[in-house]
Amino acid sequence: MHSLPPHMRPERSFQGFILALQRFWAEQGCVILQPYDMEMGAGTFHPATTLRALGPKPWKAAYVQPSRRPKDGRYGENPNRLQHYYQFQVIMKPSPANLQDLYLQSLKAIGIDTALHDVRFVEDDWESPTLGAWGLGWECWCDGMEVSQFTYFQQVAGVECAPVAGELTYGLERLAMYVQGVDRVYDLNFNGRDGADKVTYGDVFLQAEQEYSRHNFEHADTTMLFEQFKMAEAACKKYLDAGWKGGKREEHLMALPAYDQCIKASHVFNLLDARGVISVTERQSYIMRVRELAKACGEAWVHTEAGSAA
């Protein structure tokens, strides 16, 4: 690690931090993927996790996923909260026996020394109502700060995981702030340079946080969004129906495009929720609708080549 030039070191730059994690997990045999090209609330929504977690075939992947939480926007004024941030996601199926050790080694790779810092695994049962998924695991704490989520998936998209996949999610900004020793996310050094060459997280994202907060809370076109939700829902169902080969529920040929529409519906719902136009009772029914889509996609996926034993 220390052969790296200073600006590429994880404790110096945000990008170096990401590269260090990618390198570490690449060495564990993971496929290093690029972010999925759709808006989503968490890295778990990436088909490389949601769908690949299902079925018997082994799978190891790691990737950065931009995550959009429209409700968490604070117009760039809160030092920690963002409506767009990065998650680093690792999935390993079946979960290896030494996954906890691998995780701790990855912390070392990004500059967190467990002889100096108090790392703890604190109970946190993970559940995603929209994905019809749950698992058991922990929040990983470093000196009292939650830095990662560690989950053994038991069920995803309504389907039992057999075998179980282990999932790790790192909150990148938060961890990088810790390692760089800054209190405000916008002060993160992005490129590891100094002086005039230095680019901060704020240089890259502050304006975006302000603009998207305006959009998410005040201007997002709700008429259009309601319509988009319905369209995505209908399209998802349509592609799912059309994907069954020969109309028989034995082999599915279009699970991935259908699942894209489920991701779309979920994000549109999050935007509508941020706009405050969904009542308490309706909220539940929207979550149910997305879950139904996710379950149907999971059902289709386990009948595809990658999702089945065949």
């Binding site: 079946p94 979960s95 057999a162 075998p163 179980v164």
Partner: peptide, 13 residues
């Protein structure tokens, strides 16, 4: 109160 499966053997019920 809650239990889980894990690892390679979790493929079997």
């Amino acid at each position: 109160p809650k239990q889980m499966r894990w690892g390679e053997l979790s493929a079997k019920s």
